[in-house]
């Protein structure tokens, strides 16, 4: 099936560094579970046995931003929280991706009220907007696959000269 099948025949493969790097990157996306509210519970369910995010190589949920490359913002982001979310995003090493899980993070959703940020794209670059309130776990897995597809298309040199973000 995998690489080991090649070992029997030629013993080597040819590929590009880009393909190699993006394959490695997309097969082990370490998510930063930014579980803020209700969606965080569904995020927990994705980690559980039934939906099992480990099948996609993303079971390593790190609560420190420095070891993650995908931020799943799960839950309503208020103005007070937005500064925290942004700071954590800034602390993640490049390259990094963001899933806006649920309608609250995507557009403000059902919370049209004074403390809620109407869409986190006002202060964060977002790669995938995920519908649902909250999205079903299968839907989150779908989003993860889409992110993997997106990562698979990147080239290693795209991030070579990326400016360093200032963290504090």
């Amino acid at each position: 099936m995998g690489l080991e099948a090649k070992l029997q025949t030629d013993g080597f493969i040819t590929t590009t560094i880009d393909a190699m790097v993006s394959w490695a990157r997309k097969s082990a996306v370490w998510p930063m579970p930014m579980g803020i509210s209700c969606c965080g519970i569904e995020l927990m369910a994705v980690g559980g046995a039934k939906y099992d995010i480990a099948r996609f190589g993303s079971e390593v949920m790190r609560f420190t931003p420095r070891q993650c490359d995908l931020m799943i913002v799960a839950g309503t982001v208020t103005y007070k929280m937005s500064h925290v979310v942004r700071k954590i995003y800034d602390q993640m090493p490049d390259p990094k991706w963001v899933i806006a899980m649920g309608v609250c993070t995507s557009t403000g959703g059902m919370y049209r009220s004074y403390p809620v940020v109407q869409g986190i794209d006002q202060f964060l670059p977002v790669d995938i907007y995920l519908a649902g309130c909250p999205p079903r776990p299968d839907n989150l897995l779908n989003a993860l696959m889409m992110i993997q597809e997106k990562i698979g298309k990147t080239r290693a040199r795209d991030f070579q000269d990326a400016p360093l973000t200032e963290t504090n």
């Binding site: 937005s82 403390p115 964060l124």
Partner: peptide
């Protein structure tokens, strides 16, 4: 007398 959506700029957002 405070509106549901608040006044714009009451609460700050981080720099993008």
């Amino acid at each position: 007398d405070y509106p549901l959506m608040g006044h714009p700029g009451d609460l700050s957002l981080p720099q993008k």
